[in-house]
Design a binder for these strands. Structure first.
Lengths: 223, 223
DNA sequence: CATCATATCGAACTATCGTTCGTAACAAAT
DNA sequence: ATTTGTTACGAACGATAGTTCGATATGATG
């Protein structure tokens, strides 16, 4: 289904250089991520990426065939670790509301760790084409299904027959989370956990709803 | 404060042609909006816009100095009418919760009317530079302040001392609304009013909160 | 009719884009 | 030492980008 995004074309490991093949590729992709996050994929020239990565222009084409493949690698790796990250943190958590809190905190935490990568994944969704677009869509769909399943369990356990559309609710949450890159900068004002608690609570009970009981979620500050 | 975005450089009205200057400009901007919404500002070439508007490439530069100015005109006009639209619909509505409902319905309704324009305004926010960016930021800020004031009134009237951050709540709502262009297509499944009611309710009372009784009538959320 | 500003266009200019080619440096293997 | 495959780069290519220029057509004005 997926093309293996690095095996196959991957050359033998070079032990002599200071960096291995994978390390070098990561280094270039990281620089590319920052450039794309700053100026957008369309205006991010390969020359600018090469300069940021301190590699020659032609030298980059040793690691990927094209600019679009470069973007694909960035998005694929980011979405993969985002998904894997969420699955790990969800492990052992059974309570639906707590699963939702874990999901929100995981997403915001990942965003805080690598803002540039998540911005590229949120903002440049349509830049890929053909099979590369489909592969990414498949990954995104897994993330969507995981989240929607949590929301459905919250519905069933807390508000059966509530009348809210699960798809609308899920997309509303993704909208809130994917819009973070436009305004949220982690810092003392809004810590990751504090913001995650606020958004979770907002999504659960709204701006005039009751505060959910339990949970060590202090309203103004977090632990 | 603003540069008048059409006066000053506006030539005299030509009465002879089939279209006036303004009509012609609108026609070109409309075509440009559709192209940019489809392929993104970075990949939308002036040649593609010219072809879509059925104008020669050079002929477009009679209506604006540059590609960036073209994008500015699109965003400026869209945000202006979005803002004016909201102010009109808010006229005479006093109840905070109803004001919020009007705001959400107005935004979604505008989106349904001109999806391409609102997509361009949501997605190409950073493509402008310098004073043009500042002018747009000022407009967006007005829209933000208007919405935030409504949210604050809802807080005060329904959930005083609730502990939620107004800025977070406002940006969460904008995230939900600005993300619509990625998934929402108006139709029989989700009508504008239906979706607006769902999102308003979700924002007010969350996915497990109480359903607010009917419409503007007070739903006692205390206890 | 002559004049003038507006409106429009074909063609070309310059810059920059993504990409490729030929080649040199280097490490490991023969 | 020679071969081989990987890594890296300077230079250039063809395509396309935004923009400009000069000319033409047109309707209004005197």
């Amino acid at each position: 289904m997926f093309e293996s995004f690095e095996a196959g074309a991957k050359p033998g490991v070079t032990t002599g250089g200071r960096e291995s093949y994978d390390e070098r590729l990561n280094h270039i992709l990281e620089a590319a991520t920052n450039v794309i996050a700053r100026v957008g994929y369309g205006h991010a020239s390969m020359r600018a990426v090469a300069k940021a990565a301190q590699v020659s222009l032609a030298g980059m084409y040793h690691y990927f065939d094209s600019k679009e493949k470069m973007l694909f690698l960035i998005q694929f790796r980011t979405f993969n670790s985002l998904l894997q990250n969420l699955r790990e943190k969800l492990h052992g958590v059974e309570e639906p509301v707590e699963q939702l809190r874990v999901m929100v905190r995981s997403h915001i935490g990942y965003f805080a760790t690598d803002m540039a990568a998540l911005k590229v994944c949120s903002h440049e969704l349509d830049a890929l084409t053909g099979s590369r677009y489909e592969d990414l869509r498949h990954l995104r769909h897994q993330y969507y299904e995981l989240t929607r399943a949590i929301i459905e369990r919250v519905f069933q356990s807390r508000a059966p027959g509530g009348g809210l559309d699960e798809h609308v609710a899920t997309m509303a949450l993704f909208g809130t989370l994917n819009w973070l890159y436009r305004w949220y900068r982690p810092g003392p004002d809004y810590s990751v956990n504090g913001l995650a608690n606020q958004i979770t609570r907002l999504f659960l009970t709204g701006i005039i709803g009751l505060k959910p009981a339990a949970d060590g979620s202090a309203s103004s500050a977090e632990s």
